[in-house]
Amino acid sequence: MRNRVVPTIKLYDYLIVPIQIELDDATVEKLQLQLLNEISEKNIKGIIIDVSMVDVIDSYISFVLSETAGMAKAMGCYTVICGIQPAVALTLAQMGVRLRDIFTARNLEDAIDMLNNLE
């Protein structure tokens, strides 16, 4: 598909987004547009963002992710994030970053389970 920065997997009504690239500002902004397009084109009810491969999430990246979740919510789609590395979680918490509109799950199974129960 055109302009996809992150390859995604559609599973039932959900979109699994495993982030395996270095997230710079431009990429994360492109990702936002990509996800919003995919939600509407593929009729997605839930997004699962797997960040287990991401070593650094700074304030801007987390802001864009929250923003994306807010936009997805406006389109009737829930966002779950899973696999945050312990060190990343600690850094985010100590910076006082809040992931608004995002549910956190322990892993991919947990995330799918969560979305199954959201209806």
Binding site: I84, P86, A89, L90, L92, A93, Q94, T104, R106, N107
Partner: peptide, 12 residues
Amino acid sequence: IEMFSAVKLLGS
């Protein structure tokens, strides 16, 4: 509080 928020970010 920071520690608790971090644990919650892990989904627990």
